[in-house]
Write a protein that binds this DNA or RNA. Structure first.
Length: 273
DNA sequence: CGGTGGACCTGCTGGC
DNA sequence: TGCCAGCAGGTCCACC
């Protein structure tokens, strides 16, 4: 479900609701997530204050006071929602965190592809999934030279490379498809056949798409909600994703869908070469 | 090492 | 109405 714009929207909505507040109790209803929830998970959160909520790629990082970082990844169907007062627990609510001001933070994830753990500050960027993440696509490090050097000498498809979290952290299937539409490149194009000028076009389209999606508070097809359980609107502004057979918004052609490597790719045969 | 295909899990939709 | 196949925003691992 959540790619960078959704995780960033959750981060922004959650931060003001829990920042500075103390965790009084932690309840884990389901420990079997992608990585089992550790035995000491509850004890390491209880009594601590939230310093701030950050994001790294698709990971949510809740920094705690006096120490430790609560790390979450939402997988495909994870929701992280803060309620202002206690609410009934529903199916697939796996973790309930209660604050001294009465707010309740819920982790809810039907498919259980998500994960959560607590790390000490100094362990954070040594923990392999995080330590292996590539550059943030909204940072200056994501530039044409960087992308071009990641692409040359590789035979991969450009969409697979954009979704490789060790190259760029935060893009998934929706936004990789959207970025390539706006770049005019077919998702199946081999990166060895992309020159520096085209790499620059990808690099320019990427923050444009992501920032627009953040302004619309993410893409909600079914599950995704922000930290206050509100839907996003970017599904109404997608150019190709989930638009098979619909008219291209730029030319008279229709959007096509292919299965490539077990995932759907969407593109306009006229606009993308 | 690089690239591919399946596995993990539940829920929803569409065809019969 | 019921059943079943296929598909879904992500990641990891075995295998070639």
């Amino acid at each position: 479900m959540p790619e960078l714009p959704e995780v960033e929207t959750i981060r922004r909505s959650l931060d003001p609701l829990i920042r500075g507040h103390r965790i009084v109790s932690v309840q884990v209803l389901q420990r079997q997530l992608r990585i089992p929830v550790a035995e000491d998970f509850e004890a390491r959160l209880e009594g601590k204050c939230v310093r701030c909520v950050k994001r790294k790629g698709k990971y949510v990082l809740v920094e705690l006071d006096p120490e430790d970082v609560w790390v979450l990844h939402l997988g495909m169907s994870g929701k992280l929602t803060c309620f202002r007062k206690p609410c009934p627990i529903v199916k697939h609510d796996h973790i309930v965190v209660r604050f001294e001001n009465g707010h309740e933070l819920r982790y809810h994830d039907p498919r259980r592809f998500g994960l959560t753990l607590v790390l000490r500050n100094e362990e954070l960027f040594q923990w392999p999934p995080l330590s292996h993440l590539g550059v943030d696509p909204l940072s200056a490090q994501f530039n044409a030279d960087y992308l071009y050097s990641a692409m040359r000498n590789s035979k991969r498809r450009v969409k697979d490379l954009l979704m490789d979290q060790t190259v760029v952290a935060g893009l998934g299937n929706i936004y990789a498809n959207e970025i390539l539409f706006r770049t005019g490149l077919r998702p199946t194009r081999r990166v060895g056949r992309i020159n520096h000028r085209l790499a620059k076009r990808i690099v320019e389209a990427t923050p444009a798409v992501l920032e627009e999606a953040i302004r619309w508070r993410g893409t909600s097809f079914s599950d995704y909600r922000d930290g206050e359980d509100q839907k996003g609107e970017f599904q109404n502004h997608l150019q190709v994703y989930n638009r098979e057979g619909k008219n291209c918004r730029v030319c008279p052609d229709k959007i096509k869908k292919l299965q490539v490597g077990n995932r759907s790719v969407f593109y306009c045969p006229t606009c993308q070469t």
